[in-house]
C-alpha cells in the first residue's frame, strides 16, 4: 500500500504528462468560458419558439417515447391530467402493500393538479414532502415514497431526440418520487420540451438562471421506465425503478 495525498497523486500525473513546472494552466484555460455566437443563437432559438414548434417537438417526443415504453400524451389542462392520473390510480394495483398511496412533488405545476381532490373519490391519499418539518419528519417522506405505487413529479426539461426527462434535486422535489413508486408520472408544459441534448447542455452551461442554480447536488436524466436485459438479453421493464413512465404535457 502506498499512501499519498492529493499533491503527490497529481504530481505523478504531471510527471506522466511531462509537465514543466512553469505550466500554470487552470481549468479556465481549457474550457469554454464565454458563449460563442452559435451558443447565443441556440439560446435565442430555444426562447423564441412558438406553439407550432412546441407541438412539433411534442410529436417527436411522443414518437421517440414509444419504443422506450414511455407514454407521452398531451392533456388540455390540469383538470384533464388529474383525471387521467385518477384513472391510472384506480386501475393499477399497489405493488408494495395493500393500501394505495401516492407521493408527489411540492411543485406549482403538480400542486395545480389538485390531486388530493381527484384521488379522494377512490380513497387514495397523496403525500407531499412537508417542508416545514424537522429532519426526522423529512426522512419519513422516503418511507412514504417506498410504500406508494405512484409518484408524481414535474421536470426541468424533456428532450424530444432521446425522450429524456431531466430534473435537478431541489427542496420539495425529492429524488425518490421518480424512483421508488411503481409508476412515475411527470407533468410538464410544452415549453419545457427541447429538441436535443445539445440544447439541454447549452442551457445548462449558458442560460443565466441555470448558471446561477448550478446543476445541484443531484441532477438526473430519465429515459423510459427502469429496464434490464441481464437475463438472456431479454428486455424487462421495472428492474429497480418504476415499471411504467407517463409524461403528461399540459397544453394550457
Amino acid at each position: 500500500m502506498i499512501e499519498i495525498g492529493q499533491a503527490e497523486f497529481i504530481g505523478n500525473i504531471k510527471k506522466a504528462l511531462n509537465r514543466k513546472d512553469s505550466c500554470k494552466q487552470t481549468l479556465e484555460d481549457i474550457i469554454q468560458t464565454v458563449p460563442n455566437s452559435d451558443d447565443l443563437k441556440l439560446l435565442e432559438k430555444i426562447k423564441g419558439r412558438d406553439n407550432k414548434i412546441h407541438a412539433a417537438l411534442f410529436n417527436r417526443l411522443a414518437e421517440n417515447g414509444k419504443s422506450l415504453n414511455m407514454v407521452v400524451t398531451m392533456k388540455k389542462d390540469a383538470q384533464s391530467a388529474a383525471a387521467s392520473i385518477a384513472r391510472i390510480a384506480a386501475q393499477k394495483n399497489s405493488e408494495w402493500g395493500d393500501k394505495k398511496t401516492v407521493v408527489a412533488w411540492d411543485h406549482p405545476l403538480v400542486r395545480s393538479l389538485e390531486l388530493s381532490t381527484h384521488l379522494q373519490a377512490c380513497n387514495i391519499p397523496v403525500h407531499y414532502p412537508d417542508l416545514k418539518s424537522g429532519s426526522n419528519q423529512l426522512k419519513k417522506f422516503s418511507t412514504q415514497a417506498a410504500d406508494s405505487f405512484i409518484g408524481i413529479t414535474s421536470a426541468d426539461f424533456c428532450i424530444a431526440q432521446t425522450a429524456t426527462l431531466t430534473m435537478k434535486t431541489r427542496v420539495g422535489q425529492p429524488r425518490c418520487v421518480s424512483l421508488l413508486p411503481s409508476i412515475h408520472i411527470a407533468v410538464i408544459k410544452p415549453g419545457q420540451i427541447l429538441s436535443d441534448l445539445k440544447e439541454l447542455y447549452t442551457l445548462l452551461k449558458w442560460d443565466s438562471d441555470e448558471q446561477t442554480e448550478g446543476i445541484t447536488d443531484c441532477m438526473t436524466f430519465i429515459t423510459g421506465p427502469s429496464k434490464t436485459a441481464d437475463i438472456e438479453a431479454t428486455l424487462v421493464n421495472g428492474a429497480h425503478g418504476p415499471k411504467e413512465l407517463y409524461v403528461f404535457v399540459l397544453n394550457e
Binding site: 423529512l138 426522512k139 417522506f141 434535486t169 427542496v171 429524488r175 445541484t216 443531484c218 421506465p225
Partner: peptide, 19 residues
C-alpha cells in the same frame, strides 16, 4: 440514451428528504 444518468456533486442539501 441510457435509462438513468445522474450527476452527483455532494451530499444532500438541508431541507431535502433524501440523498
Amino acid at each position: 440514451m441510457a435509462g438513468y444518468v445522474s450527476y452527483i456533486g455532494g451530499p444532500a442539501r438541508s431541507g431535502q428528504t433524501d440523498g
